[in-house]
Design a protein around this nucleic acid. Structure first.
Length: 503
RNA sequence: UCCCAUAUAGUCUAGUGGUUAGGAUAUGGCCCUUUCAAGGCCGAGACCCGAGUUCAAUUCUCGGUAUGGGAACCA
């Protein structure tokens, strides 16, 4: 049987990193088994719908290199892929449940439900549930006379449809990452399947869709583990138990500090979204892309957050991950979201790229800073000099701005230590020497300066740092002669002369 | 409170009934580079606790504890 998996986000905001990882694992699993990967949109909660979220999710995954075979944006044999457009389908199946006796109508108002919970709590019941015991005290088609139920339904009274969960039954299922999980049905309440607005709840919709779309493996976050017994009961109620998908619940990604699972609400504390995202209040959060992360680094980092191929292998592209991927090697425990490792991956991948491959991304960074874009040849030299010492794309500019602009400020700390009183005179002298250099090459400049230093019996250890400060304004960076060669003779002489201003 | 799951250095993890418990990252030091980064070398750092089974338990069993998730007409 060929594998069919799905990623089923709800369009309620930005796609956070946990979602990206879930999508990634589904993608890897599908590719590994040459199966199909579906993007389904779970928009059954109309009150939480966020405009543009769907496109955002698609674009984010695309940037990460995660592609689907079918889905809301691609079409496919199971259209529509948006749950709000499948409303009729669920209604039909809900009716089937009513007819078979597995489900029932409930007319209780939110106030009545609150009262019920309050009543139960008052009588010492710790977690009040609408279940096999309490349903007999509520207003539903199990307690109301048949005629009244019919009258209310015909009259259009608001109602929900609940699952009639069996009183005493052991529900067990095999989780692909955790093994057998057993829960007693008394722990499961009579969950709402169809809401009074006619929309299904997640529980109803995901079971119906997974079944009708032929999903073979449900790979999702651990937050769903507790409601899986309910889903199993639903498959049973529909008579679909034989073709029920396999479940694999992924360990949650936890906040880097403190406790709790990572949530979108933490986005202002640390990056969480692949691409920049603006929420309903108009607040914009930078994405990994905007922060200068490379998608291959993000993906590699995420892949290893909860999964590993078994050996020491760490640097893997999507092809390699696909080859190595298996559900069995997914970990069981929650993992802290530690960006230090992500930064390391980014540095590795930045260096893996050829200089040519970095031209375009670096141009974008320059644009952002409003810096005039020089020739590709200049850029290539710049990139090759800087590549080894940056972690993020933005570092090219943050640490190498002086390649494009004459320094206006000079690093204070370095200046105090290295800018000796004689330095201004030296710079003027060096400028004079450099003026005579015909062949403006690193090696020429180096030997010219060294020759001058030894002639005047000066120390290279004193002159070189001052030279660096004059040329770059900073205390670190590529070999200063390389910088001088790159920016050219005119600019070098200019900077040396300007250095007399340094106090 | 109830239910479920989980537990190896700060973090991500490998692994085993007998191992000097391995790797990565982060961190400290040294070398290299007259800088910074990269690289190289060295260092410190872990099997949640308690019983039981066993010649032997980090590994198996049970019990605690802690952490995380769930307990919506949210997903």
């Amino acid at each position: 049987m060929s594998v069919v998996v799905r990623f089923a986000p709800s369009p309620t905001g930005g796609l956070h990193i946990g979602g990206v990882r879930t999508a990634l694992y589904n993608y890897l699993f599908a590719r590994k088994h040459k199966g199909r990967f579906i993007l389904r949109i779970e928009d059954t909660d109309q009150t939480r719908f966020v405009e543009g979220a769907e496109d955002y999710i698609i674009n984010s995954l695309k940037w990460c290199g995660i592609e689907f075979n079918e889905g809301v944006h691609l079409g496919g044999p199971c259209v529509p892929y948006r749950q709000s457009e499948r409303k009729e389908l669920y209604a039909g199946y809900a009716r089937q449940l009513i007819e078979s006796g597995a489900g029932y109508y409930a007319f209780d108002t939110p106030t009545e439900l609150d009262e019920m919970r309050a009543r139960l709590e008052a009588s010492g019941i710790k977690s009040p549930q609408y279940n096999s015991i309490t349903r007999s005290t509520m207003k539903n088609s199990l307690t109301l006379p048949q005629e009244e139920v019919q009258r209310r339904v015909d009259a259009g009274d608001p109602y929900v449809i609940r699952l009639k969960v069996p009183r005493k039954e052991e529900v067990r299922f095999h989780d692909e990452v955790r093994g057998w999980v057993v829960i007693h049905s008394s722990q499961v309440d009579d969950k709402v399947l169809m809401k009074s607005d006619g929309m299904p709840t997640y529980h109803m919709a995901n079971v119906v869709d997974d079944h009708t779309m032929g999903i073979t493996h449900v790979i999702r976050g651990e937050e769903w583990l507790s409601s899986t017994p309910l889903h199993v009961l639903l498959y049973r109620a529909f008579g679909w138990e034989d073709t029920m998908p396999k479940f694999a619940h992924l360990p949650l990604i936890l906040k880097p500090e403190g406790t709790g699972k990572l949530s979108k609400r933490d986005a202002d504390k640390f990056p969480q979204f692949p691409l920049a995202f603006t929420d309903a209040e108009g607040k914009t959060y930078k994405g990994f892309k905007e922060l200068g992360y490379l998608p291959e680094a993000l993906i590699n980092f995420l892949a290893l957050l909860g999964w590993n191929p078994g050996g020491d292998e760490e640097i893997m592209d999507l092809d390699r991950m696909t080859e190595a991927f298996s559900l069995e090697r997914i970990g069981k425990s929650g993992t802290k979201y530690d960006l230090a490792k992500a930064e390391w991956f980014n540095q590795v991948y930045l260096r893996k790229r050829t200089d040519e491959e970095l031209i375009e991304p670096v141009k974008i960074e320059l644009q952002k800073e409003g810096i005039e874009i020089p020739t590709d040849a200049f850029l290539l030299r710049f990139i090759s000099l800087m590549k080894e010492r940056v972690t993020f794309l933005k570092d090219f500019i943050a640490q190498g701005r002086y390649f494009f602009e004459t320094p206006q400020v000079y690093d204070e700390g370095f200046k105090q230590n290295k800018w000796v009183p004689e330095a201004p005179v030296w710079m003027i002298e060096i400028a004079k020497q450099f003026e005579t250099v015909e062949n403006w090459q690193t090696s020429e400049l180096e030997s010219c300066l060294k020759h001058w230093v030894s002639k005047h019996e000066l120390s290279l250890g004193k002159v070189l740092p001052a030279f660096r400060l004059a040329i770059t304004g900073l205390g670190y960076g590529p070999v200063t002669f390389e910088v001088a060669q790159t920016i050219g003779k005119t600019e070098t002489l200019l900077r040396l002369n300007k250095a007399t201003e340094i106090k």
